[in-house]
Nucleic acid binder design. Structure first.
Lengths: 108, 108
DNA sequence: CAAACATTCAACCCTTTGGTTGAATGTCGG
DNA sequence: CCGACATTCAACCAAAGGGTTGAATGTTTG
């Protein structure tokens, strides 16, 4: 699985996005992260592993506690991918009108 | 499933991103879209349905042919979501340094 | 009309995912 | 040392995902 796919996959789950949102406000321990969620600590632990696999969090183990911190860098990939299509929604243009506007090939 | 989730889900699959890339160069019929892929036409048809569900393509039926065209607008949601975290990778900052830089609360 | 074509529908299959519970591991505090 | 705590590991399960094949539907064309 390429990096972009891994990252998109990670952020496509609402709970994981919620976790990231939480972590963007500062690092936190696993139990703290899990607290507001209506699911088991284990489930959260799994989500964290997915996020970690995508490089979106970093883990610092300190004794029995794991401190989790947000890392935004992988989102660059998503940003770049989306940016590539930006022309298709910027302004009032959409669809392939843009195509014909920018890459006009032949006059019909 | 909220819109953002639906869109992220749709673009998280490489084949679907490849389809979008193809369509960004101009509209196309289903069979044409499927041609370069190493999978059945049916599989592609399913992918198209997912993309359609996310609003990323629009379908115009003309007799027995379906003309598919790209629609970028839903990517706005992704762009907005990512943009919200942009501070975390822009410049040399990352992690929660940013947090402390922008939201400093108390001096320790 | 009949045959070829474009596409979807339906059923099936295997793998992945997101969740659970229960046990294991390791660490801290009295 | 022992019990509470923080976290993961392992096994399990139901549902969803991505693919297949075969049939159905509707359209074009000779």
């Amino acid at each position: 699985m390429d990096n972009l796919t891994t990252v998109l996959d990670a952020i496509s789950h609402p709970s994981r996005r919620a976790i990231l949102e939480r972590l963007s406000k500062g690092p936190s321990r696993v139990t703290e992260i899990a607290e507001p969620f209506d699911m088991s600590l284990n489930a959260v632990s799994k989500h964290l592993k997915v996020l970690e696999g995508a490089g979106l969090i970093r883990r610092e183990v300190q004794g029995r506690e794991h401190f989790i911190e947000f890392r935004g860098e992988p989102l660059r990939l998503v940003s770049a991918w989306v940016h590539h299509y930006e022309q298709f929604w910027s302004g009032h243009l959409d669809r392939f009108e843009q195509h014909f506007k920018t890459k006009r090939k032949k006059k019909p």
